[in-house]
Nucleic acid binder design. Structure first.
Lengths: 405, 405
DNA sequence: GTTAGTTAGTAAAGGTTACTAACGAACTTC
DNA sequence: GAAGTTCGTTAGTAACCTTTACTAACTAAC
């Protein structure tokens, strides 16, 4: 098996991230090679690429429904029992899959050996840099269950110093992980390109910061950096059970969103997809915005305004929140129609969003689109709360390294 | 080679369409098996699936840049010269690729044998059912050059009768094709699902008409049926050189669009993506629409209104057209921002759209989004004119059967 | 004119992958 | 206890792409 491993490892493409999982962890029984070097779209397929794809399918099936046997997997994935056995034996050798024992059912035939992903045997580190006063981070297992938390205050930090804060936070979390780390996911504000370079994040004073590369090299771990709202959308997709055509709208100091089409995140022609905060809403003016225009979505929805309104009397509070919701509905209606979205999810301060605002958005969306044409549209709050970005970061790592989501 | 061929042909998945290309044409030297039975996403990869993928890559490279040698292909695609030679020899046997002769250059080394797709050796049939008074059809070669045209009047035809008109048109075109037909593409109005069933097309009185299946069985040819605006977007992508993140807006009796994200057409959660005609625009009312709402995009932009305005005096004409354009811009702005589109293309009556309307849309889009954030946005008319839908249908066939676009 | 170096394309051999066929193991049902 | 069923493995095969090595055909330079 040693030669086989060496060959498999040496072959293949350059990967976005530098190192493989487990390299920095003594506890790792074997490297995880599940998707190390994913098949790039549009590239040729060699036998080992096919193998990787099939490995991902098996992991995905195991991840979704635990307690499957090899024979179950064969039926589910469409490969033969022989091939599945071969793939599973690889996984078991890497400690990525474990045998749970015999299936307890009373059925004819030899009892099946149930398998599961070794969900607690590996860790993932997720970071959320979107809050202006604090960077938050977590360590989770493969299920996304949070096992460690950490924060570092960053108020007014910018540039190199902010990068240093990321390292401080990661140093802490990585040292506290008790299982081999599969990878690091980081949700950053601003425009982030496909290589995980933060093209522009004004609040952090970052311009063309190759954060993904910096982190990957420092920790020798596969790293994914992406926009915070996009990561939140990923998190909602996997852990919030959102549909394959959905939009996640984050409302906080600003307004951002992540758009998922056909199960895939949309990046856009210059990696700025989801940046809807400075779209002008309606044809009747509005407050002046920091960007120079008037009536931007952010002027209606940014949390300072909503919080101020919330402190007013009950009637004014409700009116302001409902109007904000209506404005959101007005600007989302064309997007919902054009993409035929099945679901729109809001994330942000629950006390501000969950009441009249959500209702206003919902009613406006319905009254401004053709519901009968586009089928049912679900509008709801996320159930993931504050952890939505870090969980999204975890999903990005799971997807990138194991092909699982 | 015979056993090999037989095996390759017998294996494989069920295909959306029933028959392979060339089955009904005596002139076909061999079946085209380029992509017959495309790899479904999420399904396991067997060796032959990988082969199909690589075949598509080679064809794609040849399609885009003609005059490539086997060695060029090897460099381009990333496979070895040996493998490329093997793939190319298959293509040549199928008559899908031809040798052009030696490269004329004066370079060191053995002169290369240039290859090209046999662009004139096969035909594709494309139909456009979106006009309310006439079904249009064409026969093209693999380049999309139109070699035959046909029409059939369908004013007030609905239901079975309209299906009959499709058959009449196809009978004519199929009989006039002088080369083996690779497949049939049909752009239909209304909601069309992934199987090519017209879920709903009110103008034609169609509900759940399995048009793709009907045509595929009748002509024993691979068939693709999709929404007309979506097909137009495909046509603009391939033959109009549009970018990978774009939107094509068709303005005629109604307003429809096709959205392309990351190079892929968006279908939406209930196959109604692009249906933006009945989105309410602005917050200042508008004319009543047949759908019951007021101020729908169609009330501002549908061609009867524009034509009426065009007959008025010059000042009123320009004002109406510009206002219509502005309304389009208002409703597109959120979509452009959310998806970070690089390009928006208009298709429809040139005399109505190309002037003040386009300008109004362009200015409105710029003034209501953050151009500096989203990079340059191109807004333009299509150069494909009336043929945009039939050409899109041709692209769908090319993509579906040869993996080329 | 000869030699060296380069490029194109082919041939043979080898490794990986997943398949089919067949079998033993372990259980239920009659 | 015999028969049937299901699980997982073993053995052998087909398909695919690779590496290595070769010939053919050209340019460049001495």
């Amino acid at each position: 098996m040693t030669t086989k491993d060496a060959q498999r490892r040496s072959s293949g493409d350059t990967v976005q991230t530098v190192a493989d999982a487990g390299a920095s962890s003594a506890a790792a029984p074997q490297r995880i090679k599940a998707l190390a070097g994913a098949v790039r779209p549009g590239a040729r397929v060699r036998p080992e690429h096919a193998r990787r794809h099939n490995r991902a399918l098996v992991l995905q099936a195991l991840y979704r429904a635990d307690g499957l046997s090899r024979a179950d997997l064969a039926r589910e994935v469409g490969l033969t029992r022989v091939t599945i056995s071969d793939l599973v034996s690889d996984f078991i050798e890497e400690d990525l899959v474990i045998e749970l024992g015999l299936r307890p059912d009373a059925r004819p035939g030899k009892p099946a050996t149930l398998l599961d992903i070794n969900r607690e045997g590996f860790a993932i580190v997720g970071l959320d840099l979107s809050n202006y006063s604090v960077f938050r981070g977590v360590v989770t297992d493969l299920d996304g269950s949070i096992v460690e938390r950490a924060e570092v205050a960053v108020r007014d930090m910018t540039g190199e110093e902010a990068v240093g804060a990321v390292f401080t936070l990661l140093d802490d979390l990585v040292s506290r992980a008790s299982a081999p780390i599969v990878g690091i996911g980081i949700g950053s504000p601003g425009i982030v390109d496909l290589d995980g370079t933060v093209v522009s994040a004004p609040n952090l004073g970052w311009t063309d910061v190759p954060l993904q590369q910096l982190v990957a090299e420092r920790y020798e771990l596969p790293t994914q950096v992406a926009n915070d709202a996009n990561m939140a959308a990923q998190g909602e997709r996997s852990f919030g059970g959102a549909s394959t055509d959905m939009m996640l709208v984050r409302i906080g100091r600003g307004v951002g969103s992540g758009v998922v089409v056909g199960g895939h995140l949309v990046y856009g022609s210059s990696f700025a997809a989801g940046e809807i905060g400075h779209v002008v809403v309606g044809t009747d003016g509005g407050d002046e915005c920091a960007c120079g225009k008037a009536g931007c979505l952010e002027t209606w929805l940014a949390s300072p305004r909503l919080e101020a309104a919330a402190k007013a009397d009950e009637t004014a509070r409700e009116a302001t929140l409902r109007e904000a919701g209506e404005r959101l509905g007005i600007s989302l209606a064309p997007v919902v129609a054009a993409l035929n979205l099945g679901e729109v999810v809001l994330a942000g301060p629950h006390n501000l969003l969950a009441g009249p605002l959500l209702e206003g958005t919902s009613e406006t969306l319905r009254s401004r689109t053709m519901a009968e044409l586009h089928g049912d549209l679900t509008l709801r709050m996320t159930a993931l709360g504050r952890d939505i970005v870090v969980l999204g970061a975890v999903v990005m790592v799971l997807t990138g390294q194991l092909g699982v989501s």
